[in-house]
Amino acid sequence: MTSSLLTGGPSLAELDERARDIFRRVVESYLETGDPVGSRTLSKGGVHLSPASIRNTMQDLTQLGLLGAPHVSAGRLPTHAGLRLFVDGLMEVGDVGEEERRTIEARLTGRGQTFDDALNEASAILSGLAGGAGVVVTPVRDAGVKHVEFVSLSADQALAVMVFDDGAVENRLMSLAAGVTPSA
């Protein structure tokens, strides 16, 4: 694995399959628990490698700036750059066609919309394009997002809970598309 941190960091495509799998599992576990993730946790959680092999790959990911550790003996957690890479990888969608582009622009430039309505519409559009959750926040603070959790409220509604590095917590109600499972 080679790093291109000076030119914006590595892409998921630059990582080999093992590194992508371990990186994905570390990020997903961290987002679920908020705790550093150890090699033994990953080996018991379905990665069919020894803890030593997992540690070596985690060290490579740390050298690339994608993972960090709160202290030497702790597990690893994603860095800001690692989370950004993970989100960017999730958001890779194909080119939007001209007709779709016009539809999106029409939805976002609707007359009489409040600012909150426009943000909600942008979130719904992103969600549809990505096939997952769409979260749009305005830059009202300098703190990064520390943790995001989705709580199912009903078959068509969920609560998004966002915890920021500065300790602030925001909750947002989300409408869910028909058939969206809790794991999605």
Rank of each mutant, 00 (worst) to 15 (best):
D21I: 03
N56C: 01
R172L: 12
A118I: 07
G134H: 04
A124C: 07
V148T: 11
R20I: 10
S183C: 01
A69E: 10
A19M: 06
G132Q: 03
R55H: 09
A184R: 12
T181P: 00
P78Y: 10
A52H: 09
G38V: 01
G8E: 03
G131R: 12
A13G: 08
L67D: 09
E98I: 08
R40N: 06
V163L: 13
E121S: 12
R101K: 13
D95W: 05
P70R: 11
S53M: 09
R40A: 14
T2F: 01
T2V: 03
G9S: 06
A124N: 12
L15P: 01
G110F: 00
G94H: 04
R172W: 07
L108K: 01
A130L: 02
S123M: 02
N171F: 06
T103H: 08
S154E: 08
A178H: 05
G34C: 06
L67E: 05
L119T: 15
E100K: 07
M58A: 13
G131C: 11
A124Q: 11
M174Q: 13
L67V: 07
V180L: 14
T109C: 01
V148Y: 00
F164H: 11
V96K: 04
V135E: 14
T41V: 06
G89E: 03
T33W: 04
A168Q: 08
I125M: 05
Y30P: 02
S43W: 01
P78N: 13
V140R: 06
T103K: 10
A74M: 12
A13K: 13
T62A: 14
I125Q: 09
S154H: 06
E14G: 11
V96S: 07
S4Q: 09
E17S: 11
M162T: 15
D117P: 03
L31I: 06
A133M: 10
E100M: 09
D165Y: 02
S53C: 05
A143F: 03
A124G: 15
D16K: 02
G65C: 10
A13P: 00
S11R: 14
V72H: 09
R102D: 12
H147I: 00
S11V: 10
N56S: 10
D95S: 13
G46A: 04
I125H: 04
